[in-house]
Design a protein around this nucleic acid. Structure first.
Lengths: 107, 107
DNA sequence: TCCTCATATGAATGATTGTTCATATGAATA
DNA sequence: TATTCATATGAACAATCATTCATATGAGGA
């Protein structure tokens, strides 16, 4: 079962399954914190771990999920793996969410 | 702990808690199906239930969650309660997600 | 080549959440 | 006002998922 974006005229075919999976990735505080840090700068796992304030293991598990969802990319730099945001949709997505939350309850 | 959208220059202050809660609402297949139906037209609970193919109770539970998140609005019409999308962010959000999913794996 | 250090991964557990079933609520209309 | 019908709600259960702990992996530098 799938639905296209008839409203915007976009010729996009996407399943409900894929969409919920995508939003599920964005629905975790730890993963959001990671993304927020990566919006500012590319970082290695250790640094993300420090900034977000969670264990290396926890961060690594979550980065794997972000990778699978194509929200972050990895690049090796010497001994460390440097993670970065993979595309602009993420940024827009987060801003859109912030806008919505900010307007909740108004009017 | 909160973060503002320094990247877009938006003066929005939102907590990680609020953001994850928002995306969590969008991360369920049933709720997404409901929203998709409501993008086409305002509907009463019974009709949503029929179209989505789930029990009245299940739909009602999910509508309550969508209401609390300010994603849908209710209006009484005689004996029935008519639900509709509450604002344009939802539409944009869904389109953005579809775009991202559609571009996954490319390049 | 061997060791080391950064990162990944597997299993286990506690917490969260969606659905069902049963029932309550309450506005509309007869 | 009494009844009915649409919708909401509570409790219970199964399933999903994030974190921890322990350990594996494997590229880099000596």
């Amino acid at each position: 079962m799938s639905k296209d974006a008839k409203h915007t005229g976009l010729a996009v075919e996407v399943s409900m399954e894929q969409m919920s999976a995508f939003f599920k990735v964005l629905s975790d505080k730890t993963r959001l914190s990671i993304l927020m840090e990566l919006l500012d700068a590319s970082l290695c796992v250790m640094h993300i771990s420090e900034r977000v304030g969670m264990s290396q293991s926890a961060i690594s598990h979550q980065l794997a999920i972000l990778r699978r969802a194509d929200l972050v990319r990895v690049k090796r730099n010497g001994k460390t793996l440097v993670y970065s945001i993979s595309d602009e949709h993420v940024r827009l997505m987060l801003d859109m969410a912030m806008l919505h939350i900010n307007e909740e309850g108004k009017q």
